[in-house]
Design a protein around this nucleic acid. Structure first.
Lengths: 344, 344
DNA sequence: CTGTTAGCGCCTTCAA
DNA sequence: TTGAAGGCGCTAACAG
């Protein structure tokens, strides 16, 4: 069931079949009709592998995420896949589990499959790898790495706005001991979120207390552990911001296991606004990052590198930006009276 | 950077390069060393597309799930990907959103990429499509469709055991008005779960009440709506089983919005045991289906079709079976006194 | 043990 | 407007 059968059946050459499938141009309508009919009758599918081989274009984009198990990512992947498929691209997804070894493997697999671009939505990136990508001139789009090069674009999430509004909200609720649970600090994006938090807190005149800033790992368990640590403090925070929703959910779990409750004893704010956050108890106040927007931007970036409208645009990467929205639900409330430590 | 450059640099023919990479056998150790060195120096990656073209094997498996946004699936995908990559396979994932049109597209894309097998972990399958798969002799493994053919294997989830234990548990807690929120009934797997429930209830001597069995759609929102309906009943159930955890989470949300609480006023039991379920409030009592086991079984099935150990095993599909475990957490409790209707 | 040759399925000049 | 021929990068006989 190759192009040859089709050609034979339509009584034309394989070249003609190829032409009618692709450039429709320069082929007699009648001949074309015969060809299409043959295609339908034989139920013929072109072999994309073979096609890539000759065209040099695989029409595959790679997408690397850190943890497919974090609901934020499937939603992102789904969005990316939707646009991609709509544009005739396939997408190869890979989850690294925050492990840079796996990241290396993922990149390699993608290179082997000749992807036309890769979106790296995580930050554990070895310089060696990114050099490899650049050397092979594979269009790449990063999330929050901040360096734009030839073939390298970047999407910057405007954390500041969201975090600031979140802190404002807590301040207006009378909180002054505010904790922060970061993501794994070897991730650039985690560090960026953390800095945004610390910076704004300082600006707001809340003296930052080192012991209130602790490290999680962007998982539920990580949030649970981090929050437990915070609760051991002589004077635990009255509110906590988490670096992502999973962490926040873990944190709430920790608060409950401690015998306290959210938001009466501790207010909790998440980050991402995964679909879940609206339905858990209590519904989570959080800072939303739009997955669709992110996905579409990433795809657009990759596409631009491949079909530059403007001369030279294909090499110079560009810096995109995504905004962030604060959404108030029920995991935040007025701070518990200062000094009052609920029995645990 | 093709095989030719490597050959030239190592001063051998391309055939020798190919041989040292693949069958290491029959190549002088010294020559091989030179080749490997050249490969390393050039940082050469073989072009998998080209390789597939000649070998006829793409080393890609397709995996079709219904909703990548349901945490059950990413966990499944991750497991599948892990085994696959470990065996040198790539995996092409596609999410259908319960839409059979998208399913058709997904299958087509996979066929075009010449997958060596496809795992269909959802049930909205048009007979035409499955015929197409059979005709092309693409090994396929289904979840719960129940028909084993040439090239078609099936994984049967033993729902009965889990559901029975769940119902037993409710019975022992004094529940007698037990509701059930099914998945979308056009899905075979949803119907299977529903039957298992109804059957056991009948066996247990609880008269089944039609109005207590309602349809959800395996999403949080669906669960929320379905539960709201149940709560409108003159005599609402004291316990509810949901067809999956997402549904259960939605149901709990509905109970709360109704002003009641879980498990005091209504007990809720889920199905799947997604990672989340342990951390929500209250932690969800549920029936676990192991994603890893499922993923590994699916992969094994596909692999078996491709490298049959036994003569003829490649055509006859086989029926695999997965067990199910009941895990008790805190969303279930003693039934509220009969007749007592908590104020809403 | 190694090189030469012939494709895999398709697209793309180059002539006709 | 169409066909013949060559080649994409690689592997698989078949000779040496």
């Amino acid at each position: 069931m190759g192009i040859r059968e089709v050609a034979k059946r339509a009584k034309v050459s394989t070249a003609t079949v190829s032409r009618t499938m692709n450039s429709a141009a320069f082929v007699d309508p009648e001949t074309a009709a015969r060809v299409w009919e043959a295609i339908r009758e034989l139920n013929y599918y072109p072999d994309l592998q073979a096609r890539s081989l000759v065209s040099g274009k695989s029409r595959i984009f790679g997408l690397i995420v850190s943890d497919i198990t974090n609901p934020f990512f499937p939603e992102l992947v789904k969005g990316f896949e939707d646009v991609a498929v709509r544009h005739g691209y396939e997408v190869m997804v890979s989850s690294t589990n925050y492990d840079s070894g796996r990241m290396g493997l993922a990149v390699r697999r993608m290179l082997e499959r000749k992807v036309e671009g890769v979106g790296i939505m995580t930050s554990e990136m070895e310089p060696a790898l990114i050099n490899e990508l650049v050397r092979r001139e594979v269009p790449t789009v990063f999330l929050d790495v901040g360096e734009v090069h030839h073939f390298i674009s970047n999407i910057r999430v405007d954390y500041a706005t969201g975090i600031n509004r979140a802190v404002d909200h807590l301040l207006s609720l009378g909180h002054s001991r505010i904790g922060f649970i970061s993501g794994p600090l070897r991730l650039k994006s985690a560090r960026v979120r953390r800095s945004a938090f610390l910076q704004y807190l300082t600006e707001a005149g809340i003296l930052e207390d080192d012991e209130l800033v602790t490290e999680g790992d962007h998982t539920i368990d990580g949030g649970l552990n981090a929050m437990s640590r915070l609760l051991q403090l002589p004077d635990p925070p009255t509110a906590v911001l988490a670096s992502n929703d999973l962490t926040a959910i873990g944190a709430m779990s920790a608060v409950r296991r401690h015998g306290w409750s959210v938001p009466q004893d501790v207010s909790v704010i998440g980050f991402d606004d995964i679909h879940f956050s609206e339905f858990i108890e209590p519904p989570l106040t959080t800072v939303r990052v739009s997955r669709t927007e992110l996905a579409e931007t990433a795809f657009r970036a990759l596409l631009n590198h491949n079909q530059p409208e403007v001369e030279g645009a294909e090499v110079h990467g560009v810096e995109y930006s995504i905004t962030t929205t604060f959404v108030i639900r029920s995991s935040t409330a007025v701070a518990r009276p200062p000094g009052r430590l609920p029995a645990s």
